[in-house]
Amino acid sequence: MAEMEQSPHHSGLGLSPIGNGWLGAIAPLRLCCGDPCFGKCHSIFSGSILSTRYTLYETSKATMLGFQSGFRRLNVIPTLHRRWRAKYLYDLLRSLVDRDMKLLYKRSMLGVAWTLLNPLLQLMVFVFVFQVVLPVDVPQYSSFVFTGLLVWTWFQSSLLQATGTIICNRPLIRQPGFPTAILPIVTITTGLIHFILALPVLVVFLWIDGATLTPAALWLPVIQVLQFVVTVGLTYFLAALNVTFRDTQHTLGVLLQLFFYITPIFYDIKNIPVEYQPFFFLNPMVHVVTAYRDILMYGTAPNWPPLLAIAAGAILLMPIGYRIFKHQSNRFVEEL
């Protein structure tokens, strides 16, 4: 019953997770209106604050991680089990992504067209501002900005949404045997689908700007997988942090807004004075965005060394993030 209560203070927090600049528009529309769990998650949030005098958490470290999944289905032949498990996880991922997509577009007339409308409107604003008002010297500017926008939109919306993934999915996490770690992957996959749906439009822009696709464009899935892995790694940490500090999503919105400016989305890295460039290269998204432009616009192979370093870092951090994520999601459902 307590979960029904909503204090005005917290619902305010729940409804504006993106920060308050005009850049808020970059997050796709589902963050503003369609996200099914915002309503639920802030009510759980305020409910737990209003109704419990003490908050109770488990004390142990996640020491028993292996043992829990290990004992299920001991009676099945291991290899068969593994194959069945992979098939099951695939089905689960598909049905959850399918559910998310349906929820996003169930009540909207334009449906999936929204996905395109949003970056297109932003593109119009950028082209006007940086070609007419303050001209920036970047050739093929529309394609250049649109590539950056698609990549950044996927990154930002995935991070923001997946950060709330633990506290929005209590019933799923409480389901015995549910692989909690799949939740951020569902969100990121949904974003990827939107990205892929927008690709034909990007091809049209490239054609208008006179860029020709070369075999280098075949690297696209590889770069996407790389971005996917980096995003998953980050979201495990962020979602876990959000359990302890419920304003993580809010703070993240502000930070991402800043990072949007220091990532070359609407300007070229070459516009930056050389003495500042090394600092920019510390931002992994700079390399990712550049790689997309290399393969799609310039038809060259991506600059592998930094990308490989990023991939290695993400893969190394993944198990740690996963453990913390698992631990925090357990802790969340155990709160009394």
Partner: peptide
């Protein structure tokens, strides 16, 4: 919950 594998003892 513990029997259901949610949380660790």
């Amino acid at each position: 919950q513990l029997v259901g594998g949610v949380g660790s003892p």
